[in-house]
């Protein structure tokens, strides 16, 4: 092991503790509502920019390349299959503490989309970039990111 862990090189004489609780409720937005309501119906909804033909999944109010509004476009239903663009097996939680059950996170390009979707992989031993995957749906979807339990190999 590397002798790399941080150590307190100088003992503090006095220190004062402080902190404050911060909590928010983030608004998902007009197009976010459409996306999350789609999940509730087990649908993957996307939108395409007419100017550059880029298809966004999740959908957006505007194309970030062309800066044109997409809200008035038809939201199309993508097929329930995509490919792994990258993946990681994560061993630490958001605090940096070990996860009791390490799990896979991945970037998934849903067929027909030009963007990637950040989600979990499930029921997989050795994922590979380029592997085809499909969503595993919750039995009781409620318009949440976790209506999709994860993506598993096709």
């Amino acid at each position: 092991m590397l002798p790399k862990k941080r150590t307190m090189t100088d003992a503090p004489t006095h220190e004062v503790r402080g902190g404050f609780p911060v909590h928010y409720h983030y608004t998902v937005g007009i197009v976010g509502e459409i996306f999350f309501n789609g999940l509730k119906e087990k649908k993957l909804l996307a939108v395409t920019c007419d100017e550059c033909s880029k298809t966004y999944f999740p959908p957006r109010m505007y194309c970030e390349d062309c800066f044109v509004e997409l809200t008035d476009k038809e939201f199309k239903v993508l097929e329930q299959e995509g490919t792994i663009e990258s993946f990681t097996k994560t061993y630490k939680d958001h605090r940096g503490d070990p996860l009791s059950e390490p799990y896979y996170l991945a970037l998934i390009k849903i067929n027909g989309a030009d963007t990637v979707f950040f989600h979990k992989l499930v029921n997989v031993d050795e994922p590979k970039i380029g592997m085809s995957v499909k969503p595993v749906w919750s039995d009781s979807p409620k318009a949440s990111l976790f209506d999709i339990i994860g993506f598993e190999p096709v």
Binding site: Y24, S86, T90, L107, L145
Partner: peptide, 22 residues
Amino acid sequence: DPIFVRQFNSTHHSIAALEKQA
């Protein structure tokens, strides 16, 4: 990102790990 990324209970280093793998 609070809506699409932060909801997963994972270290922020996992973003760098995805990039390293790619």
